[in-house]
Measured scan of single mutants.
Amino acid sequence: HNLTITQGKLFFHYNPKLCLSEIHKMEEVSGTKGRQERNDIALKTNGDQASCENELLKFSYIRTSFDKILLRWEPYWPPDFRDLLGFMLFYKEAPYQNVTEFDGQDACGSNSWTVVDIDPPLRSNDPKSQNHPGWLMRGLKPWTQYAIFVKTLVTFSDERRTYGAKSDIIYVQTDATNPSVPLDPISVSNSSSQIILKWKPPSDPNGNITHYLVFWERQAEDSELFELDYCLKGLKLPSRTWSPPFESEDSQKHNQSEYEDSAGECCSCPKTDSQILKELEESSFRKTFEDYLHNVVFVPRKTSSGTGAEDPRPSRKRRSLGDVGNVTVAVPTVAAFPNTSSTSVPTSPEEHRPFEKVVNKESLVISGLRHFTGYRIELQACNQDTPEERCSVAAYVSARTMPEAKADDIVGPVTHEIFENNVVHLMWQEPKEPNGLIVLYEVSYRRYGDEELHLCVSRKHFALERGCRLRGLSPGNYSVRIRATSLAGNGSWTEPTYFYVTDYLDVPSNIA
């Protein structure tokens, strides 16, 4: 807008934040220059609390790290170098490059900038070799853009010569660093050979998330399962459950009422301010606690030095998902009996873990797994792929695949051998790939016309006998059925096997 004052003059007093240069501009645009008398524009009460600059400061050096910015700028000295009290560095987070010096300023003089007072450097006698002032900004957020400017702080001049310097606002972004852990990993099994893994992005990506790394490792069953005799009275049979499938998407929606109208769909109840505040506090606490764990609990591995020492970490090797089922080394339970199943799973520490690289999504279907087997899954978020990966501390989750139908069934015939004193040795093959492992066998036998009897055969007993022995049988026709019990439950009964026990007292003698 054009402003013209045809008559009258300007009068400025007691404006401590208004620089004289701005008042002189007002004289020019209003056409009143030359009308004012000496005392109409006070030299001592206008701009006496402001830094009124008329020179431009330029930054000469900028260096960044993930949490620091090192700045240096060209030296500046007023005509009387004693008038320079120091520099004021202003900075704040700036997602967009549209910041002005006066953003967030209120009537009390406060604003949204963080201000650092910096002492002037030592003055050199040689004007050509003056030290460049600077400042190291610490405690910054990774991968965050900051708006920065600097200006001088000078003393009051009796001659009211307006001098000083100020830089333009520059924008500097800190470097990326390792992201925080992925949030809320959930693993479920939808079949006997697959596990579905879902997660949420890290709360602090500290860069642009480029991919996720998912490692999985087959877990050995508890050692007590191999040692305890679950045929003993009072000892509860062990059981394991597989990871249940995901709930429906509708039930997972946030901010939804727990109660549904019987007449149909209901609208979600909005969260109160107290609920939102509580969630923010919980989120802040979780982030602080995660940072504490990362800094205190997890110790970084030592990389190899120039002395030739090897990095103890196993090298990563990509495998196809079809090879995942046989990740671990199978060892027989008892070496003397080769027909026992290889369900003991000690994992070799030198073995390469299978892994998958996930790009542009937060889910993965891990296939080719062994049925009813526990897996430990390790999830890392990465925001750099080359020249070397920059990934987060791992988040861990466990899951067990679903049982395989008929995996616990005894394959092959049940054979028998009759000894003296009416002892019958029953023999059968253990299931080759049971659900988890076989903890015991149930032997059901009966003599024709009598009630059915049951015998429990422990895992250890089966390994020693290759089956079991029935003792003290009365003469007669017998039928026997056997079924295995694994961590997933009972298998199917075998087809009945028949044998006849004679009275050993009636056996004919070869003595003449």
Rank of each mutant, 00 (worst) to 15 (best):
E389K: 15
P346S: 13
V358Q: 11
A263F: 05
C231W: 03
Y498D: 12
T373R: 04
L487W: 07
K302Q: 12
S248Q: 15
E247H: 08
P475V: 08
V423Y: 08
A335H: 10
E430M: 13
V443C: 02
Q380N: 12
P244Q: 12
A335R: 14
A394K: 13
V327F: 07
V214H: 00
Q384V: 06
L440S: 07
K278F: 07
S344W: 14
R376T: 10
R301Q: 13
Q380L: 13
E279S: 08
Q252M: 04
T288K: 15
P332L: 08
Y212I: 11
G207P: 05
R319T: 12
S243T: 06
S320P: 05
Y375E: 00
R483T: 01
T340I: 12
G489N: 14
G412T: 05
K236A: 14
G467T: 03
G368R: 08
E465Y: 11
V299S: 13
R318A: 09
T494R: 02
S342M: 07
E279C: 01
Q275H: 10
D291K: 06
K287D: 11
T494V: 01
W216L: 13
N339V: 09
N295T: 08
K233S: 11
C269W: 08
H371F: 12
N421D: 14
R447I: 07
K233E: 14
M427L: 07
A463R: 11
V324A: 12
E420N: 07
Y445R: 02
V327R: 12
C267F: 15
N360I: 12
E452F: 13
A395E: 07
N477W: 04
L440E: 05
S223A: 10
I438E: 01
V214A: 07
C456Y: 03
D323F: 15
L228C: 15
A407I: 02
D204L: 08
V393P: 02
T303F: 08
G412P: 05
A336W: 09
I418K: 07
C391N: 01
S341H: 10
K278M: 07
C266K: 14
E417P: 03
D291S: 07
A381F: 02
F285S: 11
S262P: 10
P245L: 12
P508K: 04
G322W: 12
D385M: 07
S342E: 09
S284P: 03
T386M: 06
K406L: 09
L277Q: 12
L487V: 08
T502W: 04
D385N: 08
P346L: 13
V331L: 13
I377F: 05
R376F: 13
P387N: 02
I276V: 06
Y504V: 12
R286T: 13
P300H: 09
E351A: 03
T343V: 09
L277P: 03
V299I: 12
P338H: 07
D450H: 14
E265N: 11
D261K: 07
L487Y: 12
R447G: 06
E227R: 08
M427P: 01
W216S: 03
V457Y: 04
E221M: 14
Y445T: 04
V297R: 12
P205T: 02
S251H: 15
E362R: 12
H461I: 11
E310K: 01
N255M: 13
G308P: 15
T502L: 13
W242K: 07
E310L: 15
A263C: 05
I410N: 02
Y448W: 15
T210N: 02
R390T: 04
P300N: 06
H416G: 08
L473P: 02
E389Q: 12
A405L: 04
A407K: 07
D229G: 13
R286K: 13
G322R: 05
P205A: 08
Y375D: 00
D204S: 14
E350S: 13
N490G: 14
R471C: 11
A463Y: 06
P387I: 05
L277M: 12
Q256E: 02
A463H: 08
S257T: 07
P475L: 04
G472F: 09
F289D: 15
M427N: 02
E356Y: 10
K361C: 09
S251G: 05
E221F: 12
L379K: 00
G476I: 00
H254S: 15
E282C: 09
S274K: 07
P413G: 15
R218W: 10
Q384P: 07
V424M: 07
N360M: 14
E247T: 08
V327H: 06
Y504Q: 12
S398K: 11
V296S: 13
L235W: 11
P300Q: 09
S284C: 01
V345A: 06
P403L: 08
S486W: 00
S268T: 15
R390F: 05
S251R: 10
L225G: 02
H254V: 09
V299R: 15
H461T: 08
E221P: 05
S444R: 07
S474H: 08
P349V: 04
Y441A: 00
N208T: 10
N206T: 06
R316M: 14
S341C: 11
R481N: 05
D385F: 11
Y375I: 04
T343H: 11
L437S: 01
S257A: 13
D506A: 10
S223W: 09
T307E: 14
T241D: 07
K236Y: 14
F462N: 03
C468W: 09
D506C: 04
S239F: 06
K432S: 14
P475S: 08
P245E: 11
S257H: 05
R218Q: 10
P314S: 11
M402C: 15
E388Q: 14
K236G: 15
F246I: 08
G325S: 12
V297S: 08
Y448A: 14
P338M: 12
P245I: 13
H294V: 10
E452G: 06
P238T: 09
D503T: 07
Y375W: 02
L225F: 05
V423S: 07
I410H: 05
A220E: 15
S458P: 05
I366H: 01
Y396T: 11
R376Q: 04
P244V: 07
T347F: 07
R471Q: 15
L379E: 00
R400D: 04
E452T: 08
T502G: 10
K236Q: 14
A381V: 06
Y441P: 00
A330S: 15
R400T: 06
N383R: 06
N208F: 06
I438M: 04
G264V: 12
P354W: 08
V443W: 01
V414Q: 02
E389R: 14
E362A: 09
Q252P: 07
L321I: 03
K357Y: 09
T328Y: 12
S367E: 03
R390Q: 06
L232H: 11
Y441M: 01
I366D: 00
S284V: 09
E433R: 12
L470I: 12
S239H: 07
S342V: 15
N421T: 11
A407C: 01
A335W: 06
G264Q: 02
N490L: 08
V365S: 10
F298A: 15
T401H: 00
E258P: 05
F355Y: 08
W242P: 07
V214D: 00
S458M: 08
S284R: 08
K287V: 14
Y441K: 00
G234F: 15
G306C: 12
Y292I: 05
N383F: 06
F419Q: 04
E260I: 07
G491S: 07
E281T: 10
A309F: 04
Q380P: 00
K287T: 10
P205D: 15
N255G: 13
E495W: 12
S283A: 11
L277V: 15
W216Y: 08
V411I: 05
P332A: 09
K302G: 01
Y441N: 01
R376E: 05
A463Q: 11
Y478L: 00
S444D: 05
S344V: 06
I377G: 04
V365P: 09
C269E: 15
S248P: 08
L505P: 12
